[in-house]
Design a binder for these strands. Sequence first.
DNA 1: GTCTATAGGTGGATAGAC
DNA 2: GTCTATCCACCTATAGAC
Lengths: 204, 204
Amino acid sequence: MARTGKTTTDREGDTRARLVVAARDLFLEGGAASFSLREVARRVGLSAAGVYRHFDGKEALVAAACMQGFTVFSSYLVRALDAPDPLARLLATGDQYRRFALGNPLDYRFIFMSAAEDIHKGDGPATGPPSSTFRFLVDRVRECMDARVLVKADAEKVALVIWAHVHGLVSLRLSGHLSALGDDEAFAAFYGGSVEGLLRGLGR
Amino acid sequence: MARTGKTTTDREGDTRARLVVAARDLFLEGGAASFSLREVARRVGLSAAGVYRHFDGKEALVAAACMQGFTVFSSYLVRALDAPDPLARLLATGDQYRRFALGNPLDYRFIFMSAAEDIHKGDGPATGPPSSTFRFLVDRVRECMDARVLVKADAEKVALVIWAHVHGLVSLRLSGHLSALGDDEAFAAFYGGSVEGLLRGLGR
DNA sequence: GTCTATAGGTGGATAGAC
DNA sequence: GTCTATCCACCTATAGAC
């Protein structure tokens, strides 16, 4: 059984941390397919057996490695709160969503393009979207409804529609199906116009 | 699916066909990760070496196996042409898209949720969506614009927006992120309302 | 056409020395 | 805590017998 928690000053935590980083890199590079404990060990200059001093095995290593993307995602979203009014904050949320996806494509793939069961195992029943970040969007939508920028309706469902829309755009982009649109700047413009069109339909 | 052409008595075509079917099943079950030539051979009761009589190797087998999803997808889309007017045909196209995705989740994942480079290798440059089926949607959109059901605009870009929207919905559904909506029927209703909202924004 | 045998590679995991 | 040595499972692919 490997160590848990316990922040210390010895080199143990150091090696463990480097393992997590290398594991995340590898996992996000080639997906679960090409992930191997041995390769991770190789990258940090450790023998394969040495990894077992820090983790119980492959699964534990992957699990530890994959928690980071969520943190990064949240850090993008909160920046949308700097915008001055409800509509601006909603649009900024969409903007940050796109920035996160294009700036961290591998994290995005993992969080939103993998089977939900494979990801949210410690989160209780995987009945919905990653909850805390989804609630952020719901709050932005409700805010707009309260300000009469969107017509009053079920905020959760409207948030789902918006989420699906932006997810569709960025996931097709990440899969290469929208490369005809040009560079990332051109895509950003297309993305903005598309969201604009959707919000129009939602009664802005 | 009935036999197509050339009913023979030799078992060669038979074995080859069974290999393709087994390969497709296996590939769609576990993705490229768990795919192995040996397992395919096992399933059809053939030795691993025997496969090389029918295919050059693993890659060729995968390639042959993955052509089928496209055919099935097309067979769904064309049914939308039965609808009586442009708008109905556009809506029916969206409907068939959803039906295909939910009815053939593994094929859908392969076609639309894998990296484009991994799929369209024989199609020349992978600069856009699977071309022939995408053109079908563009045609439905243009038809609606001609009939003044949608405001005149760049039909290709509008089609991309619609595609992204429906893809977002079904892909989140397939990943399990929309399971809170209930069963497939409830999802279908949500899907319909969502598309409705988008088309409203696109100037219907 | 299909087989067995085999070569040569990946990987996960454990035991025991240091 | 890290190593080497080892075992076992699985894979792709080829060679040659039948």
